[in-house]
Amino acid sequence: MTEILKLERVSKTYRPPGRSAVAALDQIELSVAAGTFKVVCGHSGSGKSTLLLSAGGLQKPDAGHVLVKGTDVYRLSSEKRARFRAETMGYVFQQFHLIPYLNILENVMAPSLALTGDVAQLEQRARAMIKQFGVEQRLDHPPSELSIGERQRVALARALVNEPALLLADEPTGNLDERNSEIVIQHLRDFASRGGAVLMATHDMRIEADEKLLLENGRLELFAK
């Protein structure tokens, strides 16, 4: 299987002024192949978000390399890295980060701000995604009028509208009830089954995945397969 994400000896240490240093990531080695759904578990503050932000080209590690589809993302300039993110990756966060003044369709189409492709085609895909995630009746509603579960599904649609190779999900079910959590996880599994690579961070160890890893004291260990 094609390797989509590869982390090589990635380390990141926070050094807050006046306080002792915290090693969030220590020599992390990780790879996610196309068609796989990997989960990184760990308690709050274990470095899961740092791992996903570093993997997504949003936070440069102190050491090591992050390769996405064979490209070392931190060797790219800021502008090229932004473009690379837009074309290759999708993100889902616990807080959804929907833009409050855009309606659902516009939120899902937000990646068009970063792309130069056919907007009409993107809109077509956005509408299809919205339908797929079951929020088509809320197309012209602002996020504030949606339930928590619906908001996360919209955020997921936004992450996938670009048809990325890699989906990074940081506690996507952290704010959801059991039913909505199951829906979101199912969508992630579906994405992986269609050939996408998923790396999800969560504190919920019950979630089933192709591979579950435990992040503790900056180290990553295989937890279940």
Binding site: E79, A82, R83, F84, R85, A86, H97, A110, L113, A114
Partner: peptide, 16 residues
């Protein structure tokens, strides 16, 4: 801030 963060995450350039 949240909006800026997500725009950066989805690949919107700093200049934009």
């Amino acid at each position: 801030e949240s909006e800026i963060g997500i725009l950066r995450a989805i690949g919107v350039k700093e200049s934009v």
